[in-house]
Design a binder for these strands. Structure first.
Length: 282
DNA sequence: CACTAATCCTGGACGC
DNA sequence: TGCGTCCAGGATTAGT
């Protein structure tokens, strides 16, 4: 399941292939994703140049517009917003494109004969549009990036005061901090020795220091390793990432804790599975 | 405002 | 073998 590291991996995989290229066409075969792909999107992006490829939270952002090499000026028309959902991936195809299969919902065809093909069996992904200068309800209310300096123990401590909800639910709230999905939430709470059920407002600043460091470390490590592979994530070049084998608690219910041998517990929080060690995490 | 539950979707695992 | 049932999950939306 694509979490932040997988999106970062995808960004790194596709950016060199599409940067500065002109979009020949957007070919939409299945518009019904998380939200419908806007009907006018194909027309909006046609013949526009890819100015930049960015990531915000788990959104992949492709800035497009016009670029003049003579005056070295760029004019941003807008941004294609892509979310991989739970089972989505983008694949880089060079040259001749094979016929689309069942869950391959759209292609972005570029002038250098590269095609970006979006696949998403569960269709929780999205492809949206933000016109330059306009508000985006997807991007405008997000919390800070977990890998940015402003995400630290002071930030989490202040934001969490008087919060009664569980710390695990708290760090998965995109308004608090983006990109910490279910897997990495369990992993970073284990690494920092915090019980996922503890109320966010009752966690000490010292513990939040451990937690912010753990979140940064686990995400950075996963990015370095090319993203976690669980079930159906495939990187942009079709190769899987290698982080799954390093998970310490996620998916290990009943197995013994790597540090104290106590069986790992699985519980449900906010309709999501949480894995933790009842002895190591207080 | 804080928090919870429902919702979208389909492949895979499991029980009978 | 095949059918039904349940589960996984991100992030928004509606409801309390």
């Amino acid at each position: 399941m694509p979490e932040l590291p997988e999106v970062e991996t995808t960004k790194a995989g596709i950016a060199p292939h599409i940067q500065d290229q002109k979009i020949r066409k957007l070919d939409v075969r299945q518009a019904k994703l998380r939200w419908p792909i806007p009907a006018d999107l194909a027309g909006l992006v046609k013949n526009q140049t890819v100015l930049a490829v960015r990531r915000r939270a788990k959104y992949l952002l492709i800035d497009i517009g016009s670029a003049s090499t003579a005056t070295k000026s760029e004019t941003l028309k807008g941004t294609i917003i892509i979310h991989l959902g739970m089972s989505g991936s983008l694949r880089v195809i060079e040259g001749k494109v094979p016929p689309p299969e069942k869950h391959e919902h759209f292609d972005i065809c570029l002038s250098n004969n590269i095609t970006l093909r979006f696949t998403d069996p569960r269709r929780f992904g999205a492809c949206m549009w933000q016109a330059a200068g306009e508000d985006s309800n997807l991007l405008d209310h997000l919390g800070p990036e977990p890998l940015s300096p402003e995400f630290d123990e002071n930030y989490l401590f202040i934001k969490s005061r008087k919060r009664t909800s569980a710390v695990k639910t708290f760090i998965m709230d995109q308004k608090i901090v983006v990109g910490v999905g279910n897997i990495y939430a369990s992993e970073s709470l284990f690494l920092s020795g915090i019980n996922p059920k503890k109320a966010a407002g009752k966690v000490s600043k010292a513990k939040y220091a451990l937690l912010t460091h753990a979140i940064k470390e686990v995400l950075a490590k996963a990015i370095a390793d090319g993203g976690t592979t669980l079930k159906d994530f495939v990187g942009s070049d079709g190769k899987p990432g290698y982080f799954a084998q390093q998970l310490r608690v996620y998916g290990r219910a009943g197995e013994s804790c790597i540090t104290c041998d106590t069986p790992i517990k699985q519980i449900t929080q906010g309709q999501r599975s949480t894995f933790y060690c009842p002895k190591c995490q207080k």
